[in-house]
Design a protein around this nucleic acid. Sequence first.
DNA 1: ACATTGACCGACCGGTCGGTCAAAATAATA
DNA 2: TATTATTTTGACCGACCGGTCGGTCAATGT
Lengths: 207, 207
Amino acid sequence: MPPKIVDRESRRRQIAAAAMSLFSESGFEATSMNQVARAAGIGKGTIYEYFRSKDELIAASIQIWVGEMMEGIGSAVGGVVHPEERLRTFVQASVQAFMADDSTMKTAVAVFQTVLSNIESPTFSEGIQDAFEGIWSTIVDIIMEGNTEGVFHIRDESEAERIAINLAAFLDGIFLHHLITGKRFDLLEQVNHYMEYLLETHMKRGK
Amino acid sequence: MPPKIVDRESRRRQIAAAAMSLFSESGFEATSMNQVARAAGIGKGTIYEYFRSKDELIAASIQIWVGEMMEGIGSAVGGVVHPEERLRTFVQASVQAFMADDSTMKTAVAVFQTVLSNIESPTFSEGIQDAFEGIWSTIVDIIMEGNTEGVFHIRDESEAERIAINLAAFLDGIFLHHLITGKRFDLLEQVNHYMEYLLETHMKRGK
DNA sequence: ACATTGACCGACCGGTCGGTCAAAATAATA
DNA sequence: TATTATTTTGACCGACCGGTCGGTCAATGT
């Protein structure tokens, strides 16, 4: 009976992907549904077959983007066994992911802004909340694992959490400032500087 | 000869101030020139006597807002003499300024976003660049002063600069994450955690 | 061959926006 | 008060927006 069966989920992803590349360049508000349609190679009306509204399209795009971002970093860390090396790899992968192209960073900021503007709306904030929990717990896991292996020396898990929250915040902050100030400082140098005394002091690395 | 003398500069400030209070609540894009006119108690056309476009109004508003922000923090630090206390005061004043109300933080993020979206346009980015230089040099000054007084122990000025850049980035990052995650962690605790090992290690405080 | 389906489309709608401009208001001069 | 230069104004405009909807069409079942 169905003259043409369409995998609705993969179609959603396809449209959201096309949309995201526009969002990354011009932001969410500034991108019109007409542009999205053209970029996706479909009619505008078709978008509304798969998304109730522009907001829903934005939310879905964000979720997919965040997921891919985390997947990339996760797979980079996956292969490394030594805790310190894992932590360094995690940071390096984050730096590379964000600095790969400016548009990635701009997208991240746009996402921040959109989530903040809709901080009351669960549609937007839920996915982001999960993302943060994921990032934090990834770092905490690395630290605690290093702790039991005797590589790090942390008092307790809540201390590891504090370190994780600060590390994640620092990374976002330094990325943001690097872009805003027109790359007026050496990003890698600053990140290494942070890592240096994170490892040397709190974790009493080596001896 | 002029039948009506108008202090153009103060008029600009007055309009920009009225505009900024709206921008803080709803963001730049979402605020219409009609709303700005009503809030400023003037006709819409009058705005265009003092600003060429909405973009110029936004840029001017941002510049004034940033200026007031820095002035506030600067005056808080001004009275303190002991270097370590000055640094703590600087951080505390920043926290208070941002956490005073959510709208301040949302405004800051909106400013970031706007500047990033117009990173090529000098109209927007110039003022922000100066603001960052100001913040960095404020921190560097505190550190270097503490150095000559023997309270801090820093290798050289470039080391102080690295510390300043990282501190500023961390503060913005932690503010941002605190808001986005729905205040899922204790902001003050995290900031103190950072300050603790900033003072205890790099600066080899006390003994 | 032909009926049925649903994916797809783009013209169209109500509404909003930034920006303009002719006219009104204002105030110093004579 | 009449004149004149300047400032202020809000009605108005065209462009554009998100979203809708009647209709088209290719693919399938019979």
